[in-house]
Design a protein around this nucleic acid. Structure first.
Lengths: 141, 141
DNA sequence: ATAAACCTGACTAAATTAGTCAAGTATCAT
DNA sequence: ATGATACTTGACTAATTTAGTCAGGTTTAT
């Protein structure tokens, strides 16, 4: 089980954006340079973030992205959801006879994975972008 | 982020083993049939579990595997560890200039992943095989 | 006009996963 | 003894996923 870098990059980029979000839109080029993430890859990621209305784009020269909500209101859940970073612990087939179909026949450990999934999602639900920015500014960078 | 089926199978198989562990060793063949897991794959998994002394093997006819510890003492952490199911949230390169080398320069979100990893590992540390068997016998199967 | 910056979709190399396959070795029951 | 059962090991492979790259746009401030 591991987090993919798409999810990690999305969070890193948004923390960066939140920090520099004061007046002007922040260009992906800047984020790319500061965070060492490929520009092309960032574009893919921000395209998804925009579709989920986490950021807004400003086109043209001096354009870039701005947060579409307050940092406090953007939870990790929202970010991961936007970039398809799924927390998926069980993969039970609907037509499986043995094992698990999720309903009548639960596999021996079905409850466990459900519980784990909740445990992780709780963590993501509570953590906001603001928390990360704060935690970050307390340390020197 | 997702759990691989090697980890899931390992847990399922051990719950099965724990339930039928009363007197005789339990053969992989039986587990394979009951849980619908390929025998060959189970063999790979049990080979690892044996090396980590979670189970003991009994060769020959009527052979099979038995738990090497009390179900209460086998935590999920031990199982996942044995089959290389890693909870890995951050992948920071040691030689990275930007981003993160884990020491002097931490990436903007390093603390977050550490925290998450702890959060998940706590869950695994607390959950024992006995818990799972109990939880399971409360439901009908 | 032109350059900065967003936007989109297609493509690909590398890694990982989820097994299969083959060829053993050990031990029990008869 | 010998056959059957079951563990043991290592190599192999197909499919999927990941982490990007690449190429070609469009929009807009200056």
């Amino acid at each position: 089980m591991k987090l993919t870098s798409k999810g990690r990059y999305a969070v890193m980029a948004l923390v960066d954006l939140a920090k520099f979000n004061n007046f002007n839109p922040v260009s992906l080029r800047d984020i790319s340079l500061r965070q060492g993430i490929s520009l092309d890859y960032l574009e893919q990621i921000f395209s998804k973030l925009r579709k989920k209305e986490i950021v807004q784009s400003v086109r043209g020269t001096q354009g870039g992205y701005v947060l579409n909500k307050k940092a406090k209101e953007i939870k990790l859940t929202n970010i991961f959801d936007a970039v398809d970073e799924k927390v998926k612990t069980v993969q039970c087939k609907k037509d499986s006879k043995k094992g698990c179909n999720g309903k009548s026949t639960k596999c021996l450990t079905h409850n466990l994975w459900d519980e784990l999934e909740n445990h992780i999602n709780n963590f993501f639900d509570e953590k906001s972008l603001e928390d990360l920015v704060k935690d970050n500014s307390e340390r020197r960078i």
